[in-house]
Design a protein around this nucleic acid. Structure first.
Lengths: 218, 218
DNA sequence: CGCTTAATTGATCAGGGTCAATCGTGGTGG
DNA sequence: CCACCACGATTGACCCTGATCAATTAAGCG
């Protein structure tokens, strides 16, 4: 766990200050692959922090279409929504360890501890920036550009920036990028033909030419 | 939603809760149509609240493509970003009156006044929810559905829910929805032919059959 | 009353979706 | 240990929505 917490050093470093007071305020839970963490319509009393694993936060349309709003990895906080009722749901992409916090409890804590309040604010800001970056990708990019942006974003979470392990299926990627499984697959295959990446297996991506991907999303 | 002020209530009442402590903390500014409020690369020292008018917050790609992340109307707060440097820019869609707040100043204030802290948090949460709703529209909806969602969203801001006045151009709408000018225009024309809306002029939309639009975005 | 800019409309094209077949891989049981 | 099965991923053929290119109309404004 400690190794994974170190990912994204600046964030992890900042988190230390929050973890001190928050450690005992939360409850550690384990969620199996594909299991629900919270559902649309549920209440917003709890929010969560990822210890290990990957979480997807998503929304469904009545016809079954799904939009994944965000993937969350170790160190990130999710589950904030205005109002009482959730409009989003969250599931474990793979087995996950999380800490759940009672919102009211943390808000009380934040009143006393200025650092907690500030940290909490930063977490929400982080989610906001992530959502806005996501909107840019969804609105103004072609299929290949979307996939390139996804790979680069994911590489940032990787220990070894040259070998990415994808925790999620092609369907998850497609639903995150507003594409179909087939378009994701075709883009990846094309990148491989172009010598930009290698795909040792479906879940692993070796980055051979990061610059080429950067150019696409520039 | 509880913290979101209803548009349509008197301005003074709408802003009362945050304005009581914040009134003297902020500076009222007026921004002419199309003028920049802040730019990508600038610092994040200030954030803003809309008194009147409409603001667009957007991002540009190197090739000139633009994605409008959000439109903000009276009562809404915008300009929050993590880090020191902005990755977004903001412009007045039409003439605007805003209050600008110094972030450091407000944070000091929030330490003392619990209500301010809570209110601030709600505003950011509101922005987050808005961004996530936007992502759903961008990722998983066709052109007509996008335009329908936009009209309904905008109708919520309208005094008279049956006659919408659009503050922005077709280009703005297109850049918000990830479409082209032409697709927006065609969708609107189609709605008009179907008797769902009327277009007395380019900036005014009369809602004739809201349910039909609701069905599209259901 | 032109001039300029925004919006609409039409014709064509292409990117990505859909449908369908095949491949690959990991897991299970004989 | 290997064969089979099931599910995910890939690939191909075709189609459709929305982008692009281009012309026309409408609306402000000096």
């Amino acid at each position: 766990m400690s190794a994974q917490m170190e990912i994204g050093t600046p964030v992890a470093a900042r988190m230390a200050s929050l973890d001190q007071p928050l450690r005992m305020a939360g409850t550690v839970i384990h969620v199996g692959e594909g299991r629900e963490i919270f559902a649309e319509g549920g209440d917003t009393h709890l929010f969560y922090k990822v210890i290990s694993g990957v979480v997807r936060v998503c929304r469904f349309l009545n016809d079954g279409r799904r939009q994944i709003e965000a993937f969350h990895v170790a160190g990130e906080v999710f589950g904030f929504e205005p109002g009482e009722a959730r409009s989003l749901s969250a599931e474990a992409v793979g087995d996950c360890s999380l800490v759940s916090y009672r919102r009211s409890h943390i808000e009380t804590l934040a009143q006393k501890d200025q650092a907690v309040a500030h940290q909490l604010f930063q977490y929400v800001l982080q989610n906001l920036a992530q959502a806005q970056g996501h909107a840019l990708v969804l609105g103004r990019r072609g299929a290949a550009e979307k996939v390139a942006a996804f790979l680069l974003g994911w590489a940032r979470h990787s220990l070894d920036k040259n070998v990415i392990h994808l925790a999620m299926t092609r369907q998850d990627i497609a639903d995150y990028l507003g594409l179909t499984i087939e378009s994701v697959s075709r883009s990846l295959s094309q990148f491989e033909r172009d010598g930009v990446i290698a795909l040792p297996n479906a879940r692993q991506v070796r980055m051979l030419n990061t610059d080429a991907l950067e150019d696409l999303v520039a």
